[in-house]
Design a protein around this nucleic acid. Structure first.
Lengths: 155, 155
DNA sequence: ATATTGTTTGACTAATATTGACTTTCATTA
DNA sequence: TAATGAAAGTCAATATTAGTCAAACAATAT
């Protein structure tokens, strides 16, 4: 899988560093400079690729000596991540974000690959196939919420 | 066997490449350009010739650096059960009958207990939670049909 | 011949990425 | 304390892809 745009490249750059450490602190302007892009591109990358369902928490500070800190979520037990994800989903969730939720469950080893793929199939746009996006997102949310509930009990 | 039309030609072009590699990534516009056709023709070729029953899975991304990825999958040997169940489900199925379908899959060892339970969760009445039973049964059917299709892929 | 099925085309839609002007926050200095 | 400057944040405009759908057209089957 190649990098095809700046956002992907920056994403991988940051995740490479995070592979070795629990968290990193960056200066937005420096990273932007390094990749020859506008600073707000860094915000875009973070907003789309370092979300809670992706397993990251981001904090930042403005002003002199400002920074952006990206930390991997390291949950003590599975209940926490299930709570986090349940809150994140709410009563409606898009296909893209739903995908991230399932991926997160896979990365946390709460689902095998096959289980993840099967669930992804059930919340796929083509599967649900509603004309109303509102309805589609609501059903997707209900399915995922109930899956999370199911995962709370062993087997 | 001759190539009679552009769709066949594009199909063979892609499958030739796939003979050497497990997956390919294309830019829709480039392939369209190469064969001097409209971009949506590529969608047509993919939709009609690179389906899961045909042994392919397709993913794509829009926007800058977008792509279409086609990957070969290994199909399971015996698809009779899947065919039968697909026919049985049709375009609408009740919760009770849906349960039976999933149970069959478990008994045929196409699903583990946990996988079966997860799927049962997604087609549960409480999960889908529609006021219209018609709609509920239709969505349940779509979910199960797509699950069956997914199960043709051994991974 | 006609009906059915498959193909081609293009206008419209949707998703994702990029950019930059403007805003907000915070530390430091006058 | 007020003013200044140095960060990061927000948001909307624009650009760059791919997807959808239905009408027109072509091929095949009845």
């Amino acid at each position: 899988m190649q990098n095809r745009n700046i956002s992907d490249i920056i994403e991988h750059y940051l995740k490479d560093i995070l592979a070795d450490s629990q968290q990193i602190e960056i200066k937005r302007s420096e990273v932007a400079e390094h990749f020859n892009c506008v600073p707000s591109q860094i915000n875009y990358v973070i907003k789309t690729r370092f979300t809670i369902p992706n397993g990251y928490i981001v904090q930042s500070k403005r002003g002199g000596g400002g920074y952006i800190r990206i930390a991997k979520i390291n949950l003590i037990d599975d209940t926490d991540i299930l709570d986090e994800l349940t809150a994140y989903i709410g009563s409606s969730i898009s296909a893209t974000r739903g995908f991230q939720v399932v991926q997160s469950l896979y990365e946390e080893k709460l689902l095998t690959q096959k289980e993840a793929n099967l669930i992804l199939t059930t919340i796929d746009r083509g599967t649900l196939a509603f004309s109303e996006k509102k309805l589609e997102d609501a059903v997707r949310a209900r399915i995922l919420i109930n899956i999370l509930e199911r995962l709370r009990c062993a087997d």
